[in-house]
């Protein structure tokens, strides 16, 4: 594995954590949205992370030679899924989206859950950023050899 490959792995981690933070921000922003293009209230979104398989032939070869698990190359957002929890019903008869009984369906979003997820994403991002920093320093040190 070369050092630029290390940076690539950390970059995939940065990307995944940022996507996670974006999805959380979207959930928080839409905590009170009663209308969506698909109809009905907004539904909470969640990211699904998956560890990536070896990307190149060389890594495949390295992975085959070393068991178990082999070499992998970072992480990827597999998909963004929708949480199908039932919406929260609030009695607001004057609301334009109220049903015949006067109840309005609000998104089932728990701010505590979202904030914890955001903290996790921020910490994960930090961790990956320091791994990039480490790889960068190692590359710089190798360049020093030329001086």
């Amino acid at each position: 594995m070369n050092l630029f490959g290390v940076m690539g792995i950390s970059a995939s981690g940065l990307n995944a954590q940022r996507t996670r933070a974006e999805v959380v921000a979207g959930n928080m922003a839409n905590a009170e949205s009663t209308r969506t293009p698909e109809g009905g209230p907004y539904q909470r979104k969640e990211v699904v992370l998956q560890s990536q398989g070896p990307s190149s032939f060389r890594m495949q070869l390295a992975g085959a030679a070393s068991q178990p698990g082999g070499a992998t190359s970072g992480v990827a957002v597999r998909s963004i899924v929708t949480d199908t929890a039932t919406p929260i019903m609030r009695y607001e008869p004057s609301h334009p989206d109220a049903d015949s009984n006067g109840f309005v369906a609000y998104p089932n979003i728990n701010p505590v859950l979202e904030m914890t997820d955001l903290m996790g994403a921020a910490r994960g991002y930090q961790m990956n950023a320091s791994a990039v920093q480490a790889a960068k320093q190692m590359i710089q040190q190798s360049i020093e050899l030329l001086k």
Partner: peptide
């Protein structure tokens, strides 16, 4: 360092 970076990238997988 590559293996460690991979662990860090997969900290929430």
């Amino acid at each position: 360092s590559g293996v460690i970076a991979n662990n860090i990238a997969n900290i929430d997988t």
